[in-house]
Amino acid sequence: MIQKQSQRRGSFPQRAAITAAAWGIGLMAGAGVLAQTPQAYQVEQGEIRAALADAGDPVRGRAVVLSRESGNCFLCHAFPDADGAPPGNLGPEMSGVGARMNAGQLRLRVVDSARVNAQSIMPAYYRIEGLNRVAAAYRGKPLLSAQQVEDVVAYLAQLK
C-alpha cells in the first residue's frame, strides 16, 4: 500500500519538493532539544533490559519515527501505519517487528545497532563515541534523547 504510493509519480515541482524535504535533513531543529550526553546502560544477551527514561509513549514514538528532524527512520524502513512520507528500503520492513523482538532487543537496536551487527548501516541513535566529522551543531549529541528512545521502543513494541 505505502510502497505503491511511493512509486506513483507526481509532477515535477511536487517531486522535487518531496526530495528536498526528505533528504535535506541536515540543519534542522533538534540540536538544542537533544543536548545531553547519553547515560550508561548495560547490554545483556543482546538486550538493554532497563528503560533509559520514563515509560515510553507509542504515540510520541510514532511521531519520532516519522519525523524528519529526529528519527528519520522512514528514510530506511517502511512502517505499517505511516502516512504521507514514502519510505525507503535500506532496512527491513517494520510490520510485525514487535512480535519478532522484545523491548530489550528493540532498545539495543535503536540505541546502537553496531552492537548487534558491526557492519550495520543503521545509525546508532544513542551513542556519541566513535563518530567522525560530525557537523558542529550535532557534535557530542546523540540523535535521540533517552525519552525519545523509550517512546520509539514503545511504538515498535506494539507493531505486532
Binding site: L75, G88, V134, A135
Partner: peptide, 22 residues
C-alpha cells in the same frame, strides 16, 4: 562520517538502486 555515521560507499556502492525515503 557524520552523526548518522555513514560513508559514501554505504549508499552508492553497497546500496545503489535501493530507496532512501522517496
Amino acid at each position: 562520517v557524520g552523526q548518522m555515521n555513514l560513508a559514501c560507499a554505504h549508499c552508492h556502492q553497497d546500496n545503489w538502486g535501493k530507496k532512501l525515503g522517496p
